[in-house]
Amino acid sequence: MSRRVGVVRFPGTNCEFDTVDAINALGGHAEVLWHSASDLRNVDAIVLPGGFAHGDYLRCGAIARFSPIMETIAAFARNGGPVLGICNGFQVLTEAGMLPGALQKNVGLKFLCGMEQIEFVSTSNIIGVGASAGELLNIPINHFEGNYVCSDETLKELEEENRIVFRYIDNPNGSIGDIAGVSNEQGNVVGMMPHPERATSTILGSNDGSRLLESLLGAQQVTPT
């Protein structure tokens, strides 16, 4: 079992310690990696946590993409290394071109903060180990720009290649196809708007996020194609 997880902190990131605590509570060993470093310190997996990287200026994730660590993470992902982007981390991954589509302002222009029910669609990825399609999870969201958009061709591709990881049961933000999370072709890069690190204790309303992080801890490096 792995394993060392690097949790990346950009200026403006604010979920790094929740993520570190959640991973450590599950028996992993998480450490915070500063965005200007270009060395990943030999971690086995990377999490880009939630927050407001670089103040979300210009567009969410647009400036974070240029942080030196992103180039190393892109290479790590190309070699099959597991990378999970949560919320703002998902936005960073789309801006960096590591995941398709983009996240724009929620329909209704409301900042949304609350528990959402999501359905596992594809489990062929780093957070789906041991899960089965159709399973329902309760995981909170906390975002203003979580409205997933992509071209019709991309949507078709995501469906055909089974790369939609989660769908919302009751779409809160207008996302195309009720999409709450997607993966790359190999399944080693996943982005999701809901926050699994905030669903790691029944006292806090749900423990459903734990299994996703456990899956990440056990995820093997995929063989690059």
């Binding site: 724009q104 302002k105 929620n106 329909v107 209704g108 222009l109 409205n147 958009v149 207008g174």
Partner: peptide, 13 residues
């Protein structure tokens, strides 16, 4: 500007 065909919540509001 948001691309043609892309929902623009601010515009529609």
């Amino acid at each position: 500007l948001p691309r043609e065909g892309i929902a623009n919540p601010e515009g529609s509001t």
